[in-house]
Amino acid sequence: MSDTEEGGFVSKFLTLVIGDKRRWRQYKARVKQLPPDYRAAVEGIERYLMHFGPMDGDNSASLFEDVADLFERAAADGTPIREIVGSDPVEFVEELIRNYDKGGYVARERERLNSAISRAAGEGNGAV
């Protein structure tokens, strides 16, 4: 793969993950304006989301923007970081992901699994 092809692949991948580059730059500029501790928290969440978050560009962009909104408001109000994320930051981020993953492949497969088990167990069709 040439450098040009590789660069195109990386650009397409990033667009898939983060969506529109303009939105991504705006998000990054907002995060840069946060107080250092809030910025560090958002950057930690961002790293986690890059690995485990929704892979749909639009959902990802909205999720990142909403995280920025949340932390901007919290910083303005002086809300402590632990009050935002709670005692388990992983669970906090996983809940965010679940809220943005409704139309994604994983959510559909989870629903299919739940339906299959319910049918197999005779639930919902009058059988016991």
Rank of each mutant, 00 (worst) to 15 (best):
M1P: 00
M1A: 06
D3Q: 12
D3M: 12
T4A: 10
T4C: 00
T4V: 12
F9K: 10
K12D: 04
T15Y: 02
T15Q: 04
V17N: 08
G19M: 05
G19I: 04
G19S: 05
G19P: 02
D20R: 15
K21H: 10
K21Y: 07
R22I: 12
R23Y: 01
R23W: 00
W24C: 09
Q26R: 15
Y27S: 08
K28E: 03
A29P: 00
A29R: 10
A29G: 03
R30W: 05
R30I: 10
V31H: 03
V31P: 01
V31S: 02
L34K: 08
P35F: 13
P36R: 10
Y38D: 02
Y38N: 07
R39L: 06
R39M: 10
R39T: 06
A41M: 10
V42P: 04
E43L: 01
E43V: 02
E43N: 04
E43W: 01
G44K: 12
R47H: 14
Y48M: 09
L49C: 13
L49N: 11
L49D: 06
M50F: 12
M50P: 00
H51P: 00
H51L: 15
F52Y: 15
M55S: 13
D56R: 15
D58F: 14
D58H: 14
S60F: 09
S60N: 13
S62A: 14
S62C: 11
L63P: 02
L63Y: 02
E65D: 07
E65Q: 12
E65H: 06
D66M: 14
A68T: 08
D69S: 10
D69V: 05
L70P: 00
R73C: 07
A74G: 12
A75I: 07
A75N: 08
A75G: 08
A75D: 02
A76T: 08
A76I: 06
A76Y: 03
G78W: 00
G78T: 02
T79N: 01
T79E: 02
R82Y: 03
R82S: 09
R82N: 11
I84Q: 11
S87D: 12
S87R: 12
D88K: 07
D88C: 07
V90I: 15
V90P: 00
V90Q: 13
F92K: 14
E94C: 04
E95M: 09
I97T: 13
Y100I: 13
Y100G: 05
G103P: 04
G104P: 00
Y105G: 02
Y105C: 07
V106K: 03
R108F: 06
R108T: 06
E109Q: 13
E109L: 15
E109Y: 10
R110P: 00
E111K: 15
A116R: 15
I117H: 06
R119L: 13
G122N: 04
G124S: 04
G124D: 01
N125T: 13
N125K: 12
N125E: 04
A127V: 09
A127K: 11
V128N: 05
V128F: 05
